[in-house]
Simulated scan of single mutants.
Amino acid sequence: MIFLSKNQLALRNGQDKPEIWIAFCGKIYDLGNSRLWKNGRHYEHWAGQDLTEELKDAPHSANVFDKFEPIGYLK
């Protein structure tokens, strides 16, 4: 497992580095294989961020992360 700061996570946005990672509830997920996150963007959301607070406005529940294994933790 890896531990990243918010600044380190911010680089994994599909633009600055090829990784497409987000944080949710303290866990980091690699969404690079998701067809919904091409180029680091999913609707109005960008990779490289903690999306915990933004889930309340999403049309889906937190169960969407069940299909992804966490790869690390946000420091």
Rank of each mutant, 00 (worst) to 15 (best):
E19Y: 05
E54C: 05
Q49T: 14
K6A: 06
N63F: 04
R41D: 09
P59K: 13
L31Y: 02
S5G: 10
K6E: 15
R35M: 14
N7Y: 01
I28W: 01
N7K: 10
H45T: 13
K17G: 07
P18N: 15
I20S: 00
D57A: 07
P70T: 00
R41A: 14
F3M: 06
E44W: 15
P70H: 04
I28A: 01
R41T: 11
S34A: 07
K56C: 08
A47Q: 13
K56N: 13
E69V: 09
G14L: 03
L11H: 15
D50W: 04
L51C: 10
I71D: 03
E19W: 01
I2K: 11
I2P: 02
L55K: 02
A62D: 08
L31C: 12
A10V: 06
G32R: 06
G14K: 06
K75G: 09
L11C: 09
G40W: 03
W21G: 01
N39W: 10
R12T: 02
K38G: 03
S5R: 07
S34L: 09
L4S: 04
N39Y: 12
I20P: 01
A62F: 08
L51I: 10
M1E: 11
S5M: 12
N63E: 05
L74Y: 00
L9D: 02
G40K: 11
D16L: 08
L31I: 13
R41H: 13
D57I: 10
D57M: 10
K75I: 05
F3D: 14
K67N: 14
F24S: 03
L36I: 07
G48W: 03
W37C: 07
P70A: 02
S34V: 04
D50P: 00
D66I: 05
R35H: 12
D66W: 02
A62H: 08
N7L: 06
A23W: 03
P18W: 04
F24R: 02
M1C: 14
Y43P: 01
A10F: 05
Q49V: 05
E19S: 12
K75E: 06
A23G: 07
A23P: 01
Y43D: 11
R12I: 05
W37A: 08
I2R: 05
P70G: 04
L51P: 00
W21C: 03
